[in-house]
């Protein structure tokens, strides 16, 4: 497909405009009750800033011999829309995070964090073993440049009448920040010896020299981010062009509009029954390994029931 050069600039402008629009679509099956269920299930709704992140493994078990990496995220709470907190700082523990030796664990439905991020969180109360947010990743809303996104960086455009989240994602908001492991920690890696022996510059060094190079060369923080690809060099061709999605989104909500909605929703909900508890990385913790369960095939169950019923009738005869 050739575009007339004279119109290149115009085309580029229009392309940007169209791209913005083409990502702005609402879900056909998104929840239609707004954020109220999230509000009801939360013990606190807070706005705060990530000021500290620590990673720690759970106690090892036979099934999970290195334990399960967890993230302890500390927020400076600036506003509470619902619930009461004992302190202005709240630490939450999430499954997933760094293992301290360059390895990471991630659930695909659990958020990741960097310092300085500002969020609205729908927090569960009481003792929580797993993710401390309502519906885990769905209970985190990112505040960025006066606009509201979900935990994955997707624009939040409506929260009262219905929960509308969609449109072009800000993948740049999905960054996990991890402090560099200490040299002692990196030495614990099973592949340490192999890497050192295979690297010509490192193989003749003493451990002290290696440490010096490591601390000089390795970044103080590592970042795990999202990569995306979208440019299509050769578009599909039919005489009729491609169909565009039916639902069009507006811009993300502003912070003021989002906060006003939260205040309104919080008034509608009953007082939370459970208190939000702050987690502490100072304490060791144990997470039970997964319990394997049988997946039931509903049709097999139904068929078995029918067979059983038939047999019962036959037995009765």
């Amino acid at each position: 497909m050739k575009i007339i050069p004279f119109f290149g600039l115009v085309a580029a402008f229009v392309l940007v405009s169209i791209c913005e629009q083409s990502f702005a679509h609402s879900a056909n099956d998104s929840a239609d009750t707004g954020m109220l269920p999230l509000v009801h299930d939360s013990s606190a709704i807070v706005f705060g800033k990530v000021i500290d992140i620590e990673y720690k493994n759970s106690e090892p078990s036979k099934e999970e011999p290195t334990g399960l990496p967890h993230t302890f995220v500390t927020y400076q709470i600036e506003k509470a829309f619902r619930g009461k907190l004992r302190e202005e700082r709240l630490t939450l523990r999430f499954p997933g995070g760094a293992d301290g030796a360059g390895g990471y664990y991630m659930d695909t439905n659990t958020p990741t964090f960097s310092r300085g991020e500002t969020d609205v969180l729908f927090v569960l109360g009481g003792e929580v073993e797993g993710c401390p947010l309502v519906d885990c990743v769905e209970g985190r809303f990112r505040i960025y440049e006066d606009q509201v996104y979900n935990a994955w960086g997707v624009p939040v455009v409506e929260v009262l009448k219905e929960l509308k989240i969609g449109g072009k994602p800000r993948f740049d908001l999905n960054v996990m920040e991890i402090p560099r492991p200490s040299f002692e920690q990196i030495m614990q890696r099973e592949d340490f010896k192999e890497i050192i022996e295979s690297d010509k510059s490192a193989s003749g060094m003493t451990l002290k020299e290696m440490r010096e190079v490591y601390e000089k060369e390795a970044p103080e923080f590592y970042h795990i981010s999202y990569g995306v690809e979208g440019e299509v060099a050769t578009p599909d061709e039919s005489k009729d062009g491609e169909v565009t999605p039916m639902e069009i989104f507006g811009k993300p909500l502003t912070v003021d509009a989002f906060f006003a909605a939260l205040e309104e929703l919080a008034k509608e909900a009953e007082e939370p029954r459970l208190e939000v508890l702050s987690a502490s990385s100072a304490k060791d913790f144990y997470i039970a390994p997964p319990t394997v369960e049988k997946l039931e095939d509903s049709e097999e169950k139904a068929a078995a029931y029918t067979t059983k019923a038939t047999l019962t009738v036959a037995d009765g005869k």
Partner: peptide, 30 residues
């Protein structure tokens, strides 16, 4: 279990219909 060196597909009572538990590494060492 996660971290046992085995990629496993199993069922458990969890909240989403499905989840992938991913282990990966990213670090600098020469």
């Amino acid at each position: 279990g996660s971290g046992n060196g085995q990629n496993e597909i199993y069922a458990q009572n969890i909240s989403p219909p499905g989840v992938a538990k991913m282990r990966y590494h990213c670090y600098w060492l020469f």
